[in-house]
Amino acid sequence: MMIVNSTMADMDTLFAFYRAGAVYMKDMGEVRPWQEFERTAVAKEIEEGRQWKVLDNGETVAVFLTTYNDPFVWQEKDQDPAVYIHRIATHPEHRGKGYVQGIVDWGREHARENGKKFLRLDTGARNTRLVNYYKRCGFNLLGEVYPDSPALPAHYRGGIIALMEIAI
């Protein structure tokens, strides 16, 4: 398994993974699955070096995004030095093969290399199956928030979000 930055050539692949992730969320009963993301925003994330892909034998098996702040969801905790992981999407044929744990392990090292003290992510609080999965990956559940900023993607607004963290 290797994690490398996504490029503009990966744009269609990223969106295919996001669509498959949204379908999976619906199938799992998620009340607020991902909506279609804006291509211009994803292009900017690629240009900033924050979009990543997980390769296994040269094949893209998962994608995710990193950021170093998330004030609308993490509120006052956003002042802490942290790496935030967003939009993990694993190809349907590769779910259950440990790629998310690989992303978490990579995220810990990425946080260390960048002088951060925390690795964080958030997910729908009512998706107890996913919350428990992230706990098994080493995250601690810190609590829940109810973000409602128009700056957030639609799937955040009006929902209950579980905040999860690993101290580095």
Rank of each mutant, 00 (worst) to 15 (best):
Q79I: 13
K53M: 05
Y156W: 08
V61E: 04
E165V: 05
G158D: 07
W52Q: 04
K44I: 12
N5I: 06
N132R: 12
R19Q: 14
L119C: 01
F15H: 12
R129Y: 01
K135I: 09
A111S: 11
Q35R: 12
P33N: 09
N114H: 15
G158M: 08
Q75T: 09
M1C: 06
C137S: 07
K77S: 08
H110Y: 15
M2K: 15
V100I: 14
D80E: 15
P81G: 04
A20S: 08
T128H: 12
A125M: 08
G107C: 09
M164L: 12
L142T: 09
G29L: 11
W74T: 03
H91S: 12
V31R: 12
K117T: 11
E76T: 13
T123Q: 04
M11F: 05
A111K: 05
A162C: 10
I88K: 01
I3D: 09
K116N: 14
R157V: 15
N57H: 13
Y156K: 03
I161D: 01
E45R: 04
I161L: 09
P71E: 10
T90A: 03
Q79R: 14
E47Y: 03
G21T: 03
T60Y: 05
H110W: 13
W106V: 08
F72N: 09
V100D: 01
P71S: 10
I168C: 13
L119P: 02
H110I: 02
A22P: 03
P92F: 07
G98I: 11
V54D: 00
R120H: 05
P150Y: 04
Y146S: 09
N114A: 09
N114Y: 04
T7P: 02
V23A: 12
M8C: 08
P81W: 06
W34K: 06
R108E: 06
E48P: 01
V23F: 00
V100C: 05
Y99E: 03
